[in-house]
């Protein structure tokens, strides 16, 4: 298939970038989106041009490093990661716009690569449990209701890709933050630090400059892992509760 690409090219964080047109004449619909970009980069290299920089690692939808905005939608038209998106989702002759995540808190490093270390700092502000490590305890030592375990596990599938921020009209990272609050808050191991966790993570979320949530839901629609919107309601309740309890 023939594809007209418009790709964001930006040399470094200091200078502004622009959309640049490329044409690919021989794209297979079985290629993944990243393989299509690989093909573009090969031809750019051959003609002595700078290849397009983009992030990727596992290419199987689990690491969260890939992710670009395709035709204005984070990760493109299917609800999956960019690496798991295939060219059959597009039609022959389509024009495809490819841009980096845009957020004040995700500065562009180069082309399609953004700096997502703000996410790491949110996790560092409380997205963990302080537990003595050692040999793994027996699986049934601390019983967890099935429903809670399932919901905690669903929330734990967040891969930290940042699509939620890219999709949010307010540039909020609440879905990412709430996924971790929900994951740990539903489990017994997460209880001792529950209040200080939500306070620390929300403070860091705000300090990083992310916007506030207005319950629009674009994040959850873009999330490749289907993290549900009600995790955010849960975070809010936890934060308001923690403030009311006066601890943490």
């Amino acid at each position: 298939m023939k594809i007209n690409l418009r790709v964001w090219r930006q040399k470094n964080p200091e200078i502004d970038g622009k959309m640049v047109d490329y044409q690919l004449d021989d794209v297979s619909e079985d290629m993944s989106f990243l393989e299509m970009l690989d093909v573009l980069n090969e031809s750019l290299s051959v003609s002595g041009e700078e290849p397009v920089a983009f992030d990727h690692d596992c290419r199987e939808g689990i690491c969260g490093s890939c992710g670009v905005v395709i035709n204005g939608i984070a990760h493109g038209p299917e609800v999956t990661t960019t690496c798991q998106l295939h060219m059959r989702s597009f039609a022959d002759g389509d024009t495809i716009d490819v841009e980096p995540w845009r957020s004040g808190s995700f500065p562009v490093v180069k082309d399609l690569v953004v700096d997502r270390s703000s996410f790491d700092r949110i996790i560092q502000a409380g997205g963990y449990v302080s537990a003595p490590t050692g040999t793994a305890p027996d699986a049934h030592a601390t019983p967890v209701p099935k429903k809670d375990a399932d919901h905690a596990f669903d929330a734990a599938t967040c891969i930290g890709c940042g699509a939620c921020v890219a999709a949010c009209p307010n540039g909020s990272a609440m879905l990412f933050t709430a996924a971790k609050i929900t994951h740990l808050g539903l489990l017994p191991q997460g209880q001792p630090e529950r209040d200080s966790r939500v306070i620390g993570m929300v403070d860091q979320h705000d300090a990083e400059g992310f916007g506030g949530c207005t319950q629009i839901g674009e994040c959850t629609a873009a999330c490749p892992k289907g993290i549900p919107l009600h995790t955010i309601s849960r975070l809010n309740k936890d934060l308001l509760g923690a403030l009311a309890r006066g601890e943490g």
């Binding site: 204005g72 400059g209 207005t214």
Partner: peptide, 29 residues
């Protein structure tokens, strides 16, 4: 206060911060 934060967080342009003219109205908002 939230409006101002959202503008800073979204490179001053809210949902219009992408160059693409496709899917201007997002997915479901």
């Amino acid at each position: 206060a939230l409006w101002r934060r959202a503008r800073t967080a979204s490179a001053r342009q809210g949902a219009k911060r992408y160059h693409s003219n496709q899917n201007r109205r997002g997915v479901q908002r």
